[in-house]
Design a protein around this nucleic acid. Structure first.
Lengths: 108, 108
DNA sequence: TTGACAAATCAACGACCGTTGATACATACT
DNA sequence: AGTATGTATCAACGGTCGTTGATTTGTCAA
């Protein structure tokens, strides 16, 4: 009975950020270590403006961090964000279908 | 080195289904046991057509199942779908930033 | 058969999303 | 100074999404 991230709004934001295939490919690549935008361009076969757009979305959701170095901007995955989501799913799975759950407000 | 659900398209479909706050509230409620549409209406304060719309989305994504009984249709959470997603996130977190990862095709 | 109820579907609308190509900005090099 | 490079931003477009209200389909009861 925790469901720590009862803030469904935040959860939906995270899910939304991961709801795009291009962004998932970015995330999967960043799981191998930080990358600058130009390093993503070739393997993902995407225009630079497109990558900037998606990286901004991921950053706004808190899923990646960015670090400026010279003319490059390196993006990295934020493991705690993934952990947060995983915890949310775990809490959902642990929610047991209790018989008296139809009581007012229980599932509101 | 598993990343079983390497099918990013399927992953994005699941994330997309969970990217809406109304749907997350439905899912959280269904975690307490199956419900028919009319039982969701009051606690979620939503029109019936709206709930039907979102339940259809959840069903299409494989996150819920439905069971007809008389005039009612009972929806229930499918735990395996949540498990699938959790596994995907776990695999992502386990992906170690190995030094030689910049090799061609490694993260493509 | 008539009425009541549960659920799905539809049309319409506004809002947001993802892509592309062009442009702007910042940094580095000569 | 000028030029090249990496990145962000912009305008424009087409497409999809979520909501509402009305209609339709199916099921039960009187």
């Amino acid at each position: 009975m925790h469901l720590t991230m009862s803030d469904l709004q935040q959860a939906s934001r995270l899910f939304q950020a991961l709801s795009d295939e291009t962004r998932l490919r970015i995330v999967r690549t960043l799981a191998g270590g930080e990358r600058c935008v130009c390093e993503l361009q070739e393997p993902l076969d995407a225009y630079q403006s497109r990558l900037s757009f998606h990286l901004k979305k991921l950053k706004e959701a808190g899923l990646v961090s960015d670090r400026k170095e010279g003319r490059w901007v390196f993006y990295a995955l934020r493991p705690d964000a993934l952990e947060e989501l995983r915890g949310f799913l775990t809490d959902l799975e642990e929610e047991v279908p209790s018989p008296g759950c139809s009581v007012d407000g229980c599932c509101a």
